[in-house]
Design a protein around this nucleic acid. Structure first.
Lengths: 225, 225
DNA sequence: GAGGACACGTGATGC
DNA sequence: TGCATCACGTGTCCT
C-alpha cells in the first residue's frame, strides 16, 4: 500500500529523468505493457500466497522456500497415498472371505431359481476405496449341486483353469460343502480375482469358460460313477 | 544457452551505453549484485521445473499454471489421503468381527514367532454342534511366506495331498494372499477337515506330512526361479 | 556495509 | 498486428 505509492512516485521520477535524457517516448503502448506486466506479477504473487497457505504452517514466506517445501510436501503426500492404498488393498484382500450373505443370497436367488446343477456368476466387486486404478476386482462364485463330486476336485479344476489365464490372479477364495436334502450335497466356491487392466478382458467369455470347465468336470464325474 | 550469450552481449552493450551517458559507475559491487540476482533467478526457475515435473503430466509449463495446478493437485492429494484414511479405519473396524483374529493371532504367535517360511498348525475344532459323534473335526492352517509361489499352486498341492488321505474329507476352506513388507507376499490357507473315526489317525504325522508337502512345493518353486 | 529477497520497467519471443 | 509470457538489470528494503 504505502510502498506502492512510494515506488509509483519513484517510477514517475525515473520516467521524467529518462524523458529528459532520451526525449522520445511512445507511452501509448508502453504504458499498457507496463500495467499488464504489473497485473501478471500480482496474479503470480497471489498464487504464491494461496499456495503457501496450503503448505504446513511453519513455512518460510520465502518464494523459493514455498516452491521447495511445496515439492517436498507433495512427494510426502504421494507417498502417503501409495502407502494407504497398499494397506487398503491388503485389508480388502483379507476381508472378503466373510463373503457377504446379502450378496450370496442374491446370487443364490439368481442362480438357484434355475434348477441347473452348475451355476457360475461373476460380479464386479464394489471396491469403494480403490475405484479405478490399473486393476479391477471380480468375485466369481461357482455352485455345483446334486453331483457326487468332492470339493477338492472342483477347487483344483477351477484353480488349474485360472492358472492358464495369464492376466488374472487370485486374491482370496473360500469353499464350502454341505448336504442338501436327502443325499445330494452342494459345493460352493467363491473366488476374488484381480484382473490386470490393459489386456483384453471379456467378462462374459470368462464366465462361460469357467462354466464349461465346471460342467465338464461334473459330467466326467457322473460317468465315472 | 544461445539466448544466454546473446542477452549477455546485449547487456554489455547497454552497460557501455549507460557508461557513456551517466559517467559515474561503481561497477565493482553492481556486477556482483547482477550475478547474484541471476543466480537467484536460476535457482527459482530450477525449483519451478522440478515442481512441474512432479505435477500430472499434462501440465502447462506456464509459471502461473504450475502454481495453480500445484495447488489443485495438492488439495486433491489431501482429499485422497483423508478418504483413504477414513476407508482404512472402516476396514480395520470391520476386520476383527471375522472372529478369526484371535485364532489367527494364536496361530501366528505359535508359528510366526518362528521365522520359518512355512508353518503348518493343526488344531482340534471345538465343534459346538456335533460334540463327539463318529467323526472329529480339525482346522488345518498353512502359512507360506516370502516365497514367490502363487496361491493357486499352494492350494492345489494341499488338496491333491488331501485326496490321497482316504479317511479325511474337506468340509470347507479359505485362502488369502496379501503383501507383507516390501515385496514378499504371504499365502494363508485354512481348511476344516472331517476325520472319519475308527481308522487310525496320527495327528502329528498328518501335520508333518502336510508340512513336508508344502515345504517341498516352496523349495521347487524357489529352484524354478 | 555485505548479502539476500522483491518489485519494478523493459526488451525479446512465441502465438 | 496485438497479446501473454519470460529473462534481464536495477533500485530498494531488511537483516
Amino acid at each position: 500500500m504505502l510502498k506502492r505509492s512510494i515506488s509509483f512516485l519513484r517510477s514517475l521520477n525515473l520516467m521524467r529523468l529518462r524523458e529528459g535524457i532520451q526525449a522520445t517516448r511512445p507511452t501509448s503502448s508502453q504504458l499498457h505493457h507496463m500495467i499488464s506486466e504489473r497485473k501478471r506479477r500480482e496474479k503470480l504473487n497471489e498464487s504464491f500466497h494461496t499456495l503457501k497457505s496450503l503448505l504446513p504452517s511453519g513455512t518460510k514466506k520465502d518464494k523459493a522456500s514455498v516452491l521447495t517445501t511445496a515439492r517436498e510436501y507433495l512427494t510426502s503426500l504421494r507417498a502417503q497415498v501409495a502407502e494407504l492404498s497398499k494397506r487398503n488393498q491388503q485389508l480388502e484382500a483379507r476381508l472378503p472371505p466373510a463373503a457377504k450373505e446379502a450378496y450370496n443370497e442374491e446370487a443364490a436367488a439368481a442362480a438357484g431359481s434355475s434348477n441347473e446343477r452348475v451355476s457360475v456368476t461373476l460380479t464386479r466387486a464394489v471396491s469403494e476405496s480403490t475405484p479405478d486404478q490399473d486393476q479391477q476386482i471380480f468375485d466369481l462364485q461357482v455352485v455345483l449341486r446334486s453331483v457326487e463330486c468332492c470339493t477338492e476336485d472342483l477347487v483344483i479344476r477351477i484353480l488349474e483353469f485360472l492358472k492358464q489365464v495369464n492376466n488374472v490372479s487370485l486374491m482370496s477364495m473360500e469353499a464350502n460343502t454341505w448336504m442338501s436334502g436327502s443325499d445330494s450335497n452342494v459345493n460352493r466356491v467363491i473366488l476374488r480375482l484381480r484382473v490386470d487392466q490393459g489386456t483384453e478382458w471379456d467378462e462374459a467369455a470368462f464366465q462361460e469358460a469357467v462354466r464349461r470347465v465346471v460342467a465338464d468336470l461334473a459330467l466326467n464325474n457322473c460317468r465315472n460313477q
